[in-house]
Lab assay of single mutants.
Amino acid sequence: ATNIVGKVKWYNSTKNFGFIEQDNGGKDVFVHKSAVDAAGLHSLEEGQDVIFDLEEKQGKAYAVNLRIK
């Protein structure tokens, strides 16, 4: 899925991951530091509006192509 809109539920910059809540009511999506770095960001803030693509690997969904809304 592409261009999914959501809000950062939480992001832990020490542990380098967090979760994004989808605006469409879907399951929360894992986001890793690598996606944050690829977006040219240092971190994510709770409540921040983002747009992302959804990829699945080994049955787990995660956010890629992250951008600030």
Rank of each mutant, 00 (worst) to 15 (best):
A1E: 07
A1R: 07
T2A: 14
T2E: 15
N3I: 03
I4H: 05
V5E: 14
V5G: 14
V5D: 13
K7F: 09
V8A: 02
V8G: 01
K9I: 08
K9C: 03
W10F: 09
Y11M: 03
Y11V: 03
N12Q: 06
S13Q: 15
S13H: 15
K15H: 10
K15N: 11
N16D: 05
F17R: 02
F17D: 01
F19S: 02
F19Y: 05
F19W: 11
E21H: 15
E21D: 06
Q22K: 09
N24S: 13
N24Y: 10
G26S: 08
K27S: 06
K27A: 09
K27C: 04
D28C: 04
D28W: 06
V29D: 01
V31T: 03
V31W: 02
H32E: 03
K33S: 11
K33M: 06
A35D: 06
A35Y: 09
V36E: 01
V36T: 03
V36W: 05
A38V: 11
A39W: 03
A39M: 10
L41I: 15
H42P: 12
L44N: 01
L44A: 02
G47I: 03
Q48H: 09
D49E: 12
V50N: 00
V50E: 00
I51Q: 13
F52N: 00
F52W: 02
F52A: 03
F52Y: 13
D53W: 05
L54F: 08
L54G: 02
L54I: 13
L54C: 04
E55Y: 08
E55T: 10
E56A: 09
E56W: 11
K57A: 11
K57E: 15
Q58H: 12
Q58I: 12
G59A: 12
G59N: 12
G59M: 11
G59Q: 10
A61N: 13
A61H: 12
A61R: 15
A63E: 00
V64P: 00
V64A: 10
N65M: 05
N65E: 05
R67M: 06
I68C: 04
I68E: 14
I68A: 14
K69V: 07
K69H: 12
